[in-house]
């Protein structure tokens, strides 16, 4: 492999990591605060894709603006879903079967609502940007992937900043670290959970809208991404936004570069093999391992 090939692959992997990070971060914050494995995440992503599509088709609104609009819209939608369904779930500091079943059922409902409204046709968003390629000498980069990457990075950084600087972020982190102690100090866990679910849903919708620019989609959209999101959040240590970014980068690098040495058909086996290894060797994720290593004595 030449240096140019290597660089092209590295760029492809980093851009892919951006996509992976934005689609996983919503799932992580929801798991962190509420210990809910949000299987409906793929459904929210699918709705996000259609959200951008409808704005684009009906009002000719740029899908990037559509993706930005998806953030507040899905935030409110997520809060409504929380108020309607999630708040009735029994509270636990471990994932429960009832939450898993509820979210799975909700995903199926969303999927079927998708079929009801949009049918089974594959839709896609085609803009002049879709096939634009930036060429820097022998290196070519898809403009759209670059835009999606920067949008994803911007959002993940904004979330990280909000979590570390705002009162809400501190309350949320407190709930992740020790829910009982957080409640004693006056953190309203119900309110924080509602906001968190809204935030997680907003990120899922945003990710779906961004992905709609890159892929064709149908109401079944999101399934392969959901499985990868699992791998990423486990790699990242389940509860940390920076861990998600790290997990996304690891998965994207492994998936992209492993293909050079093993047939592409074994790509899923590599990803899930990585998941098994991490679960067995570093149950708190690679992020947790590094955190332990770098923690001051």
């Amino acid at each position: 492999m030449t240096a140019v090939d290597f660089l092209n692959l590295l760029i492809a992997a980093v851009l892919l990591a951006g996509i992976y990070a934005v689609m996983s971060v919503g799932m992580t914050v929801i798991y962190g605060v509420m210990k809910i494995v949000n299987l409906a995440h793929a459904g929210f992503m699918m709705l996000g894709a259609y959200f951008a599509y409808e704005f684009f088709e009906r009002f000719h609104i740029d899908p990037l603006i559509g993706a930005a609009l998806a953030l507040p819209a899905f935030f409110l939608f997520g809060m409504a879903v929380h108020w309607l369904l999630i708040r009735w779930l029994p509270k636990s500091d471990q994932p429960t079967l009832s939450s898993l079943l509820l979210m799975f059922a909700f995903w199926l409902v969303l999927q079927n609502i998708g079929y009801l409204f949009w049918g089974n046709m594959d839709r896609s968003i085609f803009t002049p940007r879709t096939l634009t390629v930036l060429t820097l000498g022998p290196i070519s980069i898809s403009l759209l992937r670059l835009i999606v990457f920067f949008a994803a990075v911007l959002c993940v950084c904004a979330l990280q900043l909000a979590l570390s600087r705002s009162w809400y972020g501190r309350a949320m982190r407190a709930l992740i670290q020790n829910p009982y102690a957080a409640q004693i100090t006056g953190v309203d866990d119900e309110r924080i959970a509602r906001i968190t679910f809204g935030l997680g849903t907003a990120f899922a919708g945003f990710a779906g809208a961004l992905l709609a620019m890159l892929y064709s989609f149908s109401p079944d959209f999101g399934r392969p991404f959901l499985i990868r999101a699992f791998v990423i959040i486990v790699l990242g240590g389940l509860e940390s936004v920076s861990g998600v970014a790290f997990g996304a980068l690891v998965l994207a690098l492994v998936e992209t570069f492993s293909i050079l040495y093993v047939p592409a058909g074994y790509q899923p086996a590599i990803s899930f093999g990585l998941l098994v290894v991490v679960l067995l060797v570093f149950p708190k994720g690679i992020g947790g391992l590094l955190e332990r290593k770098w923690r001051p004595a």
Partner: peptide
């Protein structure tokens, strides 16, 4: 070479 059905990314394969 064979590839995974329904893969979200083919950049590695295409690079090969």
């Amino acid at each position: 070479e064979n590839f995974e059905l329904g893969s979200p990314d083919f950049s590695g394969l295409l690079q090969k």
